[in-house]
Simulated scan of single mutants.
Amino acid sequence: MAHHALVGTGGARAPRLGGPVGSAAPAVGGVVLLLPDGEPASERGPSPRAYAAALAPARRLARAGRADGLVAHVVRYRGRGWNAPDARLAADARWAASEVVRRYGDVPVCLAGRGMGGRAALRAAGHTAVHAVLALAPWLPEDDMAAPPEPVKQLAGRHVLIVHGTNDARTDPELSYRLAERAKKVNRDTCRFEVHSDGHALREHRAEVAALSADFVRGALFHHPFARPLADALAAPPPLGLRMPLASGFGGTRGR
């Protein structure tokens, strides 16, 4: 796969946009940017393992949206550290959204990330090209009365889906619920699914999570009708729409 070195957000190392992943779409109608996981603080370069882990979901999303012209790219960060207060991964996500505009013009963008990439997607949602945010098991800061809360105003006007395993031992699912609760107050198009008995990697229900992600991206970017559980979650008030269980078999006959 070819990667294109590009002028980024400054410094000796610049972010890059890999791809496009999967089969080429007939004409580009929208773009999903996959944001890999990272580390809270690090000056090391981007993680090849985290980058590689984002390729499979990128391919699945590109395949699901090919008829609509969906293109998927995986973002290669400047480094693997969030490095507060710089929030470098979020800055790289915003750069990537601008690069999409430069390459493809005025097409809708979905930011999709796992772990720290999920936080980057949520934080960078204010970019004007971003129409949707998909955050899987997002890494969020612990509640700290001395620190400002994680912002949510940038989510207004976007479709937002958060998915979290209830047995996640790496990123606290209760913190993503609290963020979703605040986000719902500024953006009614916010929902959150709980994957019961699953962990951080969401391996036990990988097929259902993939189907939910594809349904969300196609609906948010191309106005396809959402599957009934997703439509219900978006319409329901808290806490129901923010603790929606992901049913076994979603994406098949039982998921519709």
Rank of each mutant, 00 (worst) to 15 (best):
L70G: 07
A87K: 15
W95Y: 07
W95G: 04
Y77K: 13
R103C: 07
D68F: 11
V100G: 05
P85R: 10
G79V: 04
A93Q: 03
L70F: 04
A91C: 10
A67V: 10
A97I: 02
A67G: 08
S98H: 12
A93S: 08
R80F: 01
R94V: 10
R103F: 06
V75D: 02
S98Y: 08
V100F: 00
G113N: 09
L70C: 06
N83A: 08
V109G: 00
V100A: 00
G105A: 11
D68A: 12
G69L: 04
G81N: 10
Y104N: 06
G69M: 03
R78G: 02
A93N: 04
D106F: 00
L111C: 09
G69F: 00
A112F: 05
A72E: 07
R76G: 13
A112G: 06
R94Q: 15
D92M: 08
V71W: 01
D68S: 12
G79I: 02
A67P: 06
G79A: 09
A96Q: 11
V107D: 07
R80C: 04
R102F: 08
G79K: 01
V75F: 00
A84D: 15
D86Y: 08
W95R: 01
R76P: 01
R94Y: 03
W95I: 05
D68N: 14
L70W: 04
V100N: 00
D92C: 07
R78W: 01
V100Y: 02
E99N: 05
R102I: 01
R103D: 07
R102Y: 09
R102D: 14
D68Q: 14
V100M: 02
L111H: 05
L89V: 13
D86R: 10
V101H: 13
D106T: 12
V109S: 03
A87G: 09
V109H: 01
A84G: 11
R94I: 07
R78M: 00
A87T: 11
A97V: 05
P85L: 14
R80L: 09
V107G: 07
E99I: 03
Y104P: 03
A84H: 11
W82G: 04
A91N: 10
P108A: 02
R78V: 05
W95K: 03
G105P: 11
C110I: 00
A87F: 09
H73R: 14
A96M: 05
P108W: 01
N83D: 15
R88T: 15
C110N: 01
A97S: 14
D86H: 13
A93M: 00
E99R: 15
A67Y: 08
D68P: 03
R88D: 14
V100R: 00
G113T: 14
A91D: 15
L70P: 07
V71L: 05
W82F: 15
V101W: 11
G69Y: 06
D92K: 02
A97F: 03
A91S: 13
G105H: 07
A112M: 13
A67H: 08
V109M: 02
G79F: 05
D86P: 06
A96S: 15
Y104E: 14
S98F: 08
W95S: 07
V71E: 10
V107N: 06
